[in-house]
Every structure is written in C-alpha cells, then in structure tokens.
Amino acid sequence: MQSRARTVLAGIAASAVIAGATVTGAFAQSPYEGEDVTLIIPNSPAGLMSQYAHTLAPHIAENLGARNVRVVNHQGGGGLKGSNILWESDPDGMTFAMTNVPTLLVAQLAESPGVQFNATDFTYLGRVQADPRLMFTGKPSGLKTIEDVRNLDRPFVFASQGTDEDFYTMVVLADALGYDLKIVTGYEGDADTSLAVIRGDADGHMTTWTQSAPAVEAGDKYAVLATTFERYEGAPDVPTALEIIEDPKQKENMQAISSILVLGRGFFGPPDMDPEATEALRAAIEKTLTDPEVLKEMKEKGLPVSFNSADAQKENVDRVFANGKNLTPMFKEAVTKIQ
C-alpha cells in the first residue's frame, strides 16, 4: 500500500513539476511578458507613419505577450531626431522604432549634419511596407522612354524637393545611365514637382506609382524607369534601371540604391539589442504583419503592408554600405552642385 501511495504521490509531484516547468518555461522564454514597450516614431503624430504605428501597436503587444506597446513621437530633423534617440536607447529590447529607413541611410551616406547613428549597427526587426518609386517624365518634355532621356542633348531637368532619397537616386541613375543632370531643388512636395513636370518647367521627377497614376492616365506624364529589383507589376512595360545598366561597377551602385529604397518603412532597434528580446520581437512582428486579419484591417484603413523579414533588411543594409565608399563621394558632389 505504501509503495503504491508513494508512486501516486511521485506521479502527482512529477506532473506538478513538469506542468510547472512548462508554464514557467514558457514565461521565462518571453522577456516581454507583462512589460511596457516603447515604439518610437521619429515622425509627426499626425502623419502616415503614426497611423501605421497606432494600428499595429496593439497587435504587436498581443503577439509579444507584452502589457502594452506605447507609441511615442519624437519628430524632428526629418526623422533624424527620433533615430538618434533610439540609437542612444537601452538595448534591453523594451524600446524600438519604426520609420522610413531609406531616409536614414541616405542621410548617413551623404554625411548629413545631425546624423548620430550608424545604420549598419541598428538591430533590424522587419519591414512593414515599401512603395516602389519610379521615374516619370512630363508630356511637354517630349521624353516618353528612358532611351529618349539618354539620348537627350541637353541636361535633364529634374524637379526635387530637397536632398531626399529621390535626389540621390537620380544622381546615381544619371551617372549610371550616362545623361547630364540638372537638379532644381526648392519644390515643396510631390504635388509641387508634379505641377512643374506637367507644366513643362522640369523634365521629370520621381514618385510612387500611386501618386502619378492619375496623371499618367490623363496623358500628362509618362513612366520611364523603375528603381526596383524587378519590374513593378502595376507597370510591367516600364523597365528597371538594373536591366539597362551594363557596366558592373555602375550596376553595383544601382543595386545599392535599389537596396536602400526597398527597405521602406521598417522596424528597428538599438545596436546590440538583447538577443532573446530581438528574437521574440522579430517573431511577433512577423506574426503581426503576416496575419490575414491584420492585413485586412490595414488595407481597410488605407495602410498597405508588404512584409519583408529582418534578415532581408539586414542583407540590404549591408549591401548598401558595401558600396558606401562609392556612393558617398557621388552624393557629396551632388550636394556641392546645388550650393
């Protein structure tokens, strides 16, 4: 009798231990359990980035098992301020950020004042979305294809908002495809550059497909070139730059630019972030951004998602900076020209 009771007790004790171990083991695996996490948005609280953040934050919190993911805005310097703050943040995994990553990369490559971070050292956590950018020309320019642009006997007049990704992309494109470029800066946004192109003041500019689609349909603009790795499915007749460029060195530069642009809106954390936290966060983000329910909700709110993994992000960033030494002098020269 005693031995049987002992067996039963042992059995109960063992089950309890195993059950306990399973439960605490699960908890022990998630460093986020019951924690408050901060998501830094280096952009305006009224802007699109914040809308993405506010919509995704609760889902990420749920998938992390965290108590809360709190969105905090630190706008300033075109995204630099918040990114600098993240750079200095504690790498315990309780703070991460989301913004337009290309902005940070080009700022660093061009050695812009105000950059206090090194983008290669950020801990990448996953991409939310990337809107492919294409080059458009205006009807008055008479340039309907990229070949027309290359055969131009005068400089191509490019309308630019300032030294953003489009500016630097054009610099690389002109260098790679062999046409003279005249950049006119000072325009106040895509609408402004659009008007200039439609009026004929400038030959072309860069926007997303969605932004220029109405004008293309109306015959006011033509799509001539895509900056993506592959042809954009919305405009299958438009060639990519990489198809056309032959010189291997130029091709590398263009690949670097395409890598920059493909990073789009993404999540990232401070350098040397806690490995356990990193893994958990990446998993939670991936789960959120591939969840059909979440995707449906985002689509309804006009916030498209095209997830790409953290590894892919890191790969792109590394590719960019491998070519950094080529790009930096080109960028700096372009900035000198507009002085």
Binding site: G77, K81, N84, P113, G114, Q161, G162, V335
Partner: peptide, 15 residues
C-alpha cells in the same frame, strides 16, 4: 534646414 541647398541655417547645431 534650407531645402534648396540642404544647408542648416541659424541652427547652432541644434537638431
């Protein structure tokens, strides 16, 4: 930040 020339003006190193 001057958009035309990408020069920070009268900022005295403040982001």
């Amino acid at each position: 930040m001057d958009v035309v020339t990408a020069t920070p003006r009268f900022t005295f190193d403040s982001v």
